[in-house]
Design a protein around this nucleic acid. Structure first.
Lengths: 239, 239
DNA sequence: TACCTGACCAATTATTGATTGGTTTGTTTT
DNA sequence: AAAACAAACCAATCAATAATTGGTCAGGTA
């Protein structure tokens, strides 16, 4: 180590020891600090580099210099998740999560939530375009998630839903302009809403599970043929 | 429906039908559009509200009005979710999700995953600081999630975990420097890993559920006192 | 050779003004 | 009296700009 940097390091450590730092651990910009310490900026930077190498602080251009460990705010983007996933994985995730949300919704749903659910089933029946149909479907499932009354779970559902859309949009571009004559879904949606309305968590769970199973099977049949048998477990969880 | 809004709705639908919209589906600001259609802004807004209610378009202050479904691509940042949530909600979410991951892990876990889990339990026993203890705990739960073999679910777990950390860091600043003498957790972790290793999904589910219940109760006791009774449902889902 | 000074670069933040959906208020119309 | 309208205002958002900050380079100095 050269003499000037050694001096700067000593000064810096002393300053850090006596000085009370703000909450975010930020210390003054280099141009100020080097004047405070009475050292040149180059020397100060070498001293800071040493402390950074030891993990005692971290720096970022345009932001500043901070004591402590560099924060790792790894927010996985929806696109990144969708990239490494398959429609099958998304369906399995839905199959695990949404029935629980339905069960919770049966406990916590408000009257407004129930109204909205019924409105969605009606809108879906009245849909004349694929977009309307899908809108109503999305909205119904979203309302169920929201009705569960847990903002964290709602956020997770939103993320899952976003991944689902990203994958569907990316791989299965087929979007007919007419709504499907899928009376199966109508009845299943009705059963879900009914179970939630009657405050029956177990029935809501089963109804949602059965509905999503149907959706999954349709998806897989469309992709792999009618005789496809899904690998892995798909049973409801133990009680 | 009142006559002016009915007229506005007709005009609007006609305009939408004949007009080719830009790629993003954005239509002109209200102040322009009402002039184009020859209706008052109030009437136009009522008509727009109807279409929005039917999911045919969506609006946002400062942004504009767009046809189609409201994009949920808005990646909710961890901080944003944590802001509107409570530790209790996070625990409930963990209670709903992680037992299922454990059950799936019992089916799909590889030998490498099992090794890693056992390594984590060992590391936790040997931990001498709180940070090491917590690291081992995080890693164990993360490995279970990964062992479930579904990248979407793993991503959701990561997000949930990030929210949990954000909340714990933000609200409960107490961080003792010594690991807890919490032999309860040790035994429960062992039971989880054992159940997964023996390929018993139901036992893995129950073990994880019991473990997280304990964690939650400890958390609540610490926060609200020993006699706190948690509202809402916390029962395992129906079979 | 080591060091300092000054300038410049690129990433980031702060600021300002304009745009836009949402709301209120007072007036006019029916 | 109720509905409709017009204008003003509000808050969220966006675009453009300026300021800040860590990183780097060139030239001079001891």
């Amino acid at each position: 180590m050269n003499s000037s940097t050694e001096s700067a390091l000593t000064q810096l450590k002393a300053w850090l020891a006596q000085r009370e730092l703000p909450d975010d651990g930020r210390l003054p910009p280099e141009r100020e600090l080097c004047e405070l310490l009475g050292v040149s900026r180059g020397a100060l930077r070498k001293a800071l580099a040493l402390l950074e190498r030891d993990g005692e602080l971290w720096r970022q251009v345009g932001k500043g210099t901070f004591v402590g460990a560099r924060p790792v705010d790894k927010f996985l983007s929806v696109a990144a998740i969708a990239e490494g996933s398959s429609p099958f994985e998304v369906m399995q995730a839905r199959l695990l999560i949404e029935p629980m949300l339905a069960a919770e919704a049966a406990v916590h749903a408000s009257a407004a939530h129930l109204d909205e659910m019924q409105r969605c089933t009606r809108l879906q029946r009245e849909a004349t375009t694929w977009r309307q149909y899908e809108n109503a479907d999305n909205r119904l499932h979203r309302t169920v998630a929201e009705a569960a009354g847990n903002s964290v779970l709602t956020a997770l559902f939103d993320q899952l839903n976003a991944v689902r859309r990203a994958i569907v949009w990316g791989r299965l571009r087929q979007k007919p302009d007419h709504p499907p004559a899928d009376h199966h879904s109508f009845a299943q949606h009705d059963e879900i809403v009914r179970a939630i309305g009657e405050r029956d968590p177990e029935r809501a769970y089963r109804a949602m599970h059965e509905h999503l199973s149907t959706v999954r099977d349709n998806l897989l049949r469309k992709r792999y043929g009618a005789d496809f048998v899904r690998p892995g477990s798909n049973a409801p969880p133990p009680a």
